[in-house]
Structure formats: C-alpha cells, structure tokens
Amino acid sequence: MKSSITPRSGPVTVRRAVARDARRLTRLVRGSRAYEGQYADMVADYRVRPDYIEAHRVFVAVTDDERESRVIGFYSLLLASGELDLLFVADEAQGRGIGRLLVAHMESEARAAGLDRVRVVSHPPAEGFYRGVGAVRTGTAPANPPAVGWERPEFDFLIPPA
C-alpha cells in the first residue's frame, strides 16, 4: 500500500523500504537530536541493516519534488510480535505531519495483517508524540543496561477492524 499526503513541506509518499535504503535509515537514527546527551549511546553504533529491511515491514516517507526524492522518515512494524520497533522523522521534517502520516500508514498495515493492537516501547522524549497520535499508555518498560539505562513508556495503538 502506498499513501501520500501534501504536508506543509510538499508532497510526501510512503513506500516499502528496500535494502539500498539501509544507510539512509541508519543516518536518520544516528543523527536524531532526540538521542543527544544521555541518550546518545543508545544509537551511536546502531545500524539498520538490509537484512532487517527484508525481514520486516519497513516503510519510508519520501519527498516527491522534481529536484530529488529524499527519505525524511521511516517506521518498522514487526508483525510476529505486533510491535512498532522503529519510528523516526528527520529533524528538519518534524512538525510537518510526517510522523502522523507514518502512524496512519502503520495502522493500515497492522489492520491488513489482522492485528488488533500494536505495542510501542517509546523513547522518553517521544511520549507526547505517541499520545498525540492516539496511542494509549499501558505501562513502563524497565531499564536494560548497558544499552538503555532508563525506564521507557509503553503504549498500545488499538487497531479497530476495517
């Protein structure tokens, strides 16, 4: 399923990620300002690998202008566990509806796969975003040192049937 919107930044399309997107997605994760300071170690060595993209439902948001097509966000839906594993929007594209577009697309994919909920273990600074796009707080995931030295909020997206 492809979806598109025209947020304030211009036309954006969501498409299935392909192996050659791996480096761009890795740069998005590692370059996120949300992971500066105390959170930097969590993503310093993180890599989105081509085999990860091939094994999971990974979708990218790309700009559709005549000059170039650019990845400005992505998400990863793990069907086996019913979990939103990754959701990132480029810093310069935040506040333009890209995250909301990706969540709506994820919900549609989850519904098509027969899921009635999708779990998210959120990065603490993203809690407001998840609440704003309709996720329901369900608890707290404990710290998991050394990679994650802090508790994280847990959410569910409730997926109504079509």
Score class of each variant (00 low, 15 high):
Arg23Val: 02
Arg117Tyr: 01
Ser76Tyr: 00
Leu101Glu: 06
Val58Ser: 06
Ser32Phe: 03
Thr140Asn: 03
Arg137Thr: 05
Phe88Tyr: 15
Arg96Gly: 03
Thr140His: 01
Arg30Thr: 05
Gly134Asn: 01
Glu154Tyr: 04
His105Ala: 04
Ala110Trp: 05
Tyr52Ile: 09
Glu107Gly: 14
Ser3Glu: 11
Lys2Met: 11
Trp150Thr: 11
Gly99His: 12
Gly31Pro: 00
Ile53His: 11
Arg8Val: 04
Ala40Phe: 07
Val121Asn: 02
Pro11Trp: 03
Glu127Ser: 13
Val62Glu: 15
Leu101Arg: 10
Ser81Leu: 10
Leu87Thr: 03
Tyr46Pro: 00
Pro161Ile: 01
Arg20Cys: 09
Arg27Tyr: 02
Leu86Gln: 14
Ser69Phe: 11
Gly82Val: 12
Ser4Ala: 09
Leu25Ser: 08
Ser108Lys: 09
Asp41Phe: 02
Leu79Lys: 06
Phe74Lys: 04
Ala143Trp: 00
Val120Ile: 15
Arg16Leu: 05
Ala17Thr: 06
Thr138Tyr: 08
Phe59Val: 00
Leu78Thr: 12
Gly149Tyr: 03
Gly114Ala: 10
Arg152Ala: 14
Pro124Asn: 05
Phe59Gly: 00
Arg70Trp: 04
Gly99Arg: 10
Arg47Lys: 10
Pro153Ile: 09
Gly82Pro: 11
Ala147Glu: 13
Ala17Val: 09
Leu84Pro: 06
Met1Ile: 07
Arg23His: 12
Ile72Trp: 09
Ile5Gln: 11
Tyr35Arg: 06
Asp85Met: 06
Ala162Thr: 10
Ala34Tyr: 10
Tyr52Leu: 15
Arg70Val: 14
Val12Asn: 11
Pro160Asp: 11
Pro160Thr: 08
Gly128Arg: 13
Glu92Leu: 04
Leu115Asn: 08
Pro142Ser: 13
Pro7Leu: 02
Pro146Gln: 00
Thr13Arg: 15
Ile53Asp: 01
Ala126Val: 02
Leu102Val: 01
Val136Ser: 07
Met42Asp: 02
Ala141His: 14
Arg24Asn: 09
Thr26Asn: 05
Gly132Met: 03
Ser81Asp: 15
Val58Pro: 01
Arg119Ala: 09
Met1Trp: 12
Arg24Val: 14
Lys2Gly: 12
Glu68Val: 10
Thr140Val: 15
Ala90His: 14
Ala80Trp: 04
Leu101Asp: 02
Ser3Trp: 04
Val121Glu: 09
Met1Gly: 12
Gly139Arg: 07
Ser69Leu: 13
Ala40Gly: 03
Leu87Cys: 13
